[in-house]
């Protein structure tokens, strides 16, 4: 026998003490006249009893202590791994920074040679060289009439 369709869920909620006082009165009144819903409630009660067979005994003090130890060790291990990973990354970053700084220093030392125009004396020398160059030969006159 099944709970009647229209009341089934409300009766279920009543069984779980999840209805208001007013709804509870209504459900109880319905149960008085509905053998299907009464049978459903009896079945739920039986199931609830059976499920309580799965209730575990409380954790023993030894189990709790063992878990606490494993928890601390496990998490400390995670932190350890994390900090080790972090250290590796830090080392790599430091190395890259050192290489970068080294390149910058070397680059600054070589810069005046490469960029000769930055030096005023080199500019003057370059201008003098240009001025001392012989003037290019004038192009031969061409006969316009041809």
């Amino acid at each position: 026998m099944h709970a009647c369709h229209t009341w089934a869920r409300r009766v279920g909620a009543w069984f779980d003490d999840e209805v208001s006082e007013l709804e509870s009165v209504e459900v109880r009144a319905h149960l008085m006249e509905c053998p299907g819903c009464r049978a459903a409630v009896a079945q739920w009660r039986s199931l609830h009893g059976e499920l309580q067979l799965l209730q575990p005994a409380a954790a023993s003090a030894e189990a709790v202590a063992r878990m606490s130890f494993r928890f601390e060790e496990g998490l400390a291990g995670e932190v350890h791994e994390l900090s080790r990973g972090l250290r590796s990354w830090t080392l790599a970053a430091a190395l890259m920074l050192a290489v970068g700084l080294g390149l910058l220093v070397v680059g600054q030392r070589t810069l005046p040679r490469d960029v000769a125009a930055n030096d005023q004396r080199d500019i003057d020398r370059a201008v003098r060289e240009i001025l001392q160059r012989p003037a290019p030969a004038a192009p031969a006159p061409t006969d316009q009439r041809e």
Partner: peptide
């Protein structure tokens, strides 16, 4: 101490 490692949060 737990293995001389850093303690968790």
């Amino acid at each position: 101490p737990v293995g001389g490692r850093p303690r968790p949060d």
